[in-house]
Computed example of a mutant assay.
Amino acid sequence: MISRRRVISILAGAAALPMLGSAASASVVNWRGIALGANANIVLDHPNAELLLDKALLEIARLEKVFSLYQANSQLSVLNREGELKVPAVELIDLLNISDRIYQETDGAFDPTVQPIWALYAQKYAAGSVPNQSEIDAVRAKIGWSNLSVSPEMISFNKPGMALTFNGIAQGYIADKVAGLLRQEGVDNVLVNTGEISAIGFSPSGAPWPISLANGGRKLELTNAAIATSAPTGTFFDLDGTVGHILDPRTGLPSGQWQSLSVIDKSAARADGLSTAFCLMNKAQIQAVSGAHEVMFGAPTSV
């Protein structure tokens, strides 16, 4: 099955930790694994790093049971399958509120109800065919942020066949939650990379966390900030590599005005959602979105 997980163009400088020396490494844990289907990395500098890492991994696992599209019993999967979810997790309500703000700010370029159209493309290309316009139009009728009802007691769809995906924002949200958990535990310095990065404090060398953008090789230094990158052609539906995985919820078509685009913000969730939407927007539209974020543009693309 084709995965909607994008190829992340961010490589944490923490990969060079062995070069930091024995003095720094005594209290440093550098964990690598998988979270929400993406490569993940936590670099934790603390005397109780091993114990705190266990807590962080339990938090990732807990949140995957809320947001995963691939765990049949996750809250998101139940909602998509049944059309409603009673007593949703607080985190699910929280992420829907964050998503709503980004939806409004980007005039619908970011819309988690895009999942049915993505599923159509995945199924068609996996079967060796291409979705035609009538099929796309039929599925587009199931998309619409206004057709989602949300309360602390229940989330429900107002149209049959609707479905949500948080693959354009959940990685950043989980990075925020894990970083927040560790800060509550007294951690001042940690890098959390769950596909998007939250960099708290400083690296074990005492300098800001070094980040390299794989596309273009730009070097950054982050402290108490987050970064997310989206690339329309980071993953393809077709074997020829011509149909990118970011679909415009407003048209139902593959799109993308930038080969890659990165956003820096205090919140990894916000950086994640904005980077997803900004791929579908021109520079003037992007610059019209207010906030403290910083945008790093890749080359324009004709996708």
Score class of each variant (00 low, 15 high):
L11I: 11
L11E: 15
A12H: 03
A12E: 15
G13T: 00
A15P: 00
A16L: 14
L17P: 00
P18S: 10
P18C: 11
M19G: 05
M19W: 10
L20P: 00
L20T: 14
L20K: 04
G21S: 09
G21A: 12
S22T: 08
S22K: 13
A23F: 11
A24T: 07
A26N: 09
A26W: 01
S27Q: 14
S27Y: 06
V28D: 08
V28N: 06
V28P: 02
V29R: 08
N30T: 05
W31A: 08
R32N: 12
I34M: 14
A35H: 05
A35K: 00
G37R: 01
A38G: 05
A38K: 11
N39Y: 07
N39G: 14
A40I: 02
A40C: 07
A40T: 01
V43R: 00
V43I: 13
L44N: 03
D45K: 10
H46P: 02
H46T: 04
P47M: 08
N48L: 12
N48Y: 07
A49H: 04
A49R: 10
A49I: 03
E50A: 13
L51G: 03
L52V: 06
L53A: 04
D54N: 07
A56L: 06
A56T: 03
A56M: 07
L57H: 03
L57R: 14
L58C: 09
I60K: 02
A61R: 10
L63S: 04
E64H: 02
E64P: 06
F67Y: 15
S68P: 11
L69Q: 11
Y70S: 09
A72Y: 12
A72M: 09
N73S: 12
S74Q: 09
S74Y: 10
L76Y: 03
S77Y: 04
V78K: 06
L79C: 12
L79E: 13
L79Q: 05
L79T: 02
N80T: 03
R81M: 09
E82D: 15
E82L: 14
E82H: 11
E82A: 13
E84Y: 15
L85D: 00
K86Y: 11
K86H: 14
P88G: 07
A89I: 03
E91S: 11
E91G: 02
L92Q: 00
L92S: 02
L92I: 00
L92F: 03
L92A: 02
D94F: 08
D94V: 02
L95G: 03
L95T: 01
L96Q: 02
L96D: 06
N97L: 12
N97W: 08
I98A: 06
S99K: 00
D100I: 00
